[in-house]
Design a protein around this nucleic acid. Structure first.
Lengths: 114, 114
DNA sequence: TATATATGAAACCATTTGGTTTTATTTTAT
DNA sequence: ATAAAATAAAACCAAATGGTTTCATATATA
């Protein structure tokens, strides 16, 4: 299965904003490559490469259906991120200064949950 | 303050495994650059660059004390990551509405700001 | 069958990244 | 006053990254 030969891990995969947008799109529903790329100001080929990176990180998988390749979200590897994060939660749980940060980012919260 | 001119965001900052190790080290205690770099098989200069990236992402800050520069962890920006992740938890907590997700998320916000 | 559609693959390119080495500056400590 | 220690800054470099264009292949469809 060669799972240890992965070139991209989940940390690298989500580092790129385009790939994060792709994940979000696929969170809503499965989509073929060309449909995905229609949401971005770059070529289909570029998106295909991003999908390749996401595939290596096992965050998405693509299935050939007819002449299309349908991609779907595969969110499980994000658990590794959550786990990594959990170590740092101890630092902000007891800090008063975090309030400022949360308030500053409340706009983001609203936007992302629309 | 030039906060919008940041070259590195938190997603990029944590993409590199060396930088994640640096964060973990600084989670234990504040350290000067040379002390940090002694934990890695690369030059002090390389580590200084990583610290610069982490500084731009506001995950660490360095204070000059005598001839040393002491770095400390600044974990707040990781909240953005947690927030981003929270969207995807609906998929592995499995099914149900985004409403549930939003409600859970707002609970987190309240708890964390106590 | 011919054509349009969807993807795959390869070559290419500029910029960024992650490292190096070298040189300079600042701050102790002898 | 020197020397050592800690960092800073700059030049340099190879490889990776994120994009492009071009060409090929597979699959529907008129």
């Amino acid at each position: 299965m060669e799972t240890s030969a992965k070139k991209y891990d989940v940390f690298q995969a989500i580092a790129d904003p385009t790939r994060r947008e792709v994940l979000k799109l696929l969170g809503e529903k499965e989509l073929p490559i060309s449909e995905i790329s229609s949401h971005f100001p770059m070529s289909r080929t570029a998106i295909a490469k991003h999908l390749h990176v996401l595939t290596e990180a096992e965050l998405v998988s693509g299935q050939k259906v007819g002449r299309e390749k349908i991609y779907r979200l595969h969110p499980e590897p994000l658990q590794e991120l959550k786990q990594w994060l959990s170590y740092y939660e101890q630092f902000w749980h007891n800090k008063l200064s975090i309030l400022k940060h949360v308030v500053e980012n409340s706009e983001d919260v609203k936007r992302e949950t629309d």
